[in-house]
Design a protein around this nucleic acid. Sequence first.
DNA 1: TCCAACATGTAACAAGTTACATGATTTG
DNA 2: CAAATCATGTAACTTGTTACATGTTGGA
Lengths: 188, 188
Amino acid sequence: MSRRILKYAILGLLSKEDMSGYDITSEFKKAIGQFWSAKHSQIYVELKKLLEENSISQYIKMAGVKLEKKMYSLTTKGKEELRNWLLELDKNVETEKDIFALRLYFLKDIPTEEIPVLFNNQLKLRTEKLSFLKEQFSFHFGGEKNPLHLDAEALGHYFVLTKAISREENYINWLNKSLDIINKQESR
Amino acid sequence: MSRRILKYAILGLLSKEDMSGYDITSEFKKAIGQFWSAKHSQIYVELKKLLEENSISQYIKMAGVKLEKKMYSLTTKGKEELRNWLLELDKNVETEKDIFALRLYFLKDIPTEEIPVLFNNQLKLRTEKLSFLKEQFSFHFGGEKNPLHLDAEALGHYFVLTKAISREENYINWLNKSLDIINKQESR
DNA sequence: TCCAACATGTAACAAGTTACATGATTTG
DNA sequence: CAAATCATGTAACTTGTTACATGTTGGA
């Protein structure tokens, strides 16, 4: 993988507001999780490291009577590091790994009758994901189709959601086109 | 990551023809590298492991006078494993990691004048990649737009290339739309 | 004859997953 | 009062990257 992306993902989230490890884990289940994610086990060790490196600081927030929730905020150093990272220009496009596409490349080893099964499974998964994303979009931006009035924070969210939605729509479109070719071939 | 995807990527490639570690490394720079890839260092250790596990077998092919090229082929076990893996149904869609989208989510921390710089850099990278993919497409499928006559092996290649091309076109489209919004906002 | 591409490997390290482990709080 | 969710952590292991290391072959 690339150089400490999780570090910057965490710094970026903390730049919006103070969060606990659990909060960060939850964020990765929402919009930004479409483009980066991590399990809680990885997040807790990264937070520990970031704290040691003084990129973030910690304080306790009581949740109920006994539960000490550990909250984190950016330090000056952390803010500086985030800002520098955000301005870095990518040198090349990394492989966007996709197991379904990989499988399909080996099409000749898949029995003909199984091919539509694989496609339909993928269509189902992608359609469900698209619904989830569209719900998220309505929830945050409602019927409002015009993003011109949004502030910078909301606009970041808007871009990421529209990106994820167009990615899934494009994926589904390609699946349908390809399945069409498969069906026409079979009746050759 | 998921369970030994590299193993199956290698088995799949070897199912097309016998290859050396170097050949496999080269394949990951072409079409299939859009959806899965690995460095030679990882490939050589995986080949060693696959050989020990009897999923592949090895023989020597002289390349020149001294150079012993190590060729690998699938064993019966390897073929069986590949076939089973190809029929597995995905249970969920994995995060397709994208650093540019991640950065953009943190838009509010990017100075306004730097935003178009980031977009233009990404547009350049994606446009270059699209050109590469279209060249690959012409090379393999020429002016021929009709895939109905292709055999299973060529069709797998066709699907993967059209997938990669539509992914990049869609990406560029979203970049242009988003940059448009940015420009309109600035002159608000 | 030089240089790019061909060819193969190991070591150290970083990143990511799965499983184990425990306890508190909220909601029905 | 039970179950779901909130909340935090560690250990073992797998996967992936970067750097180190070396030698051959083909073409300009």
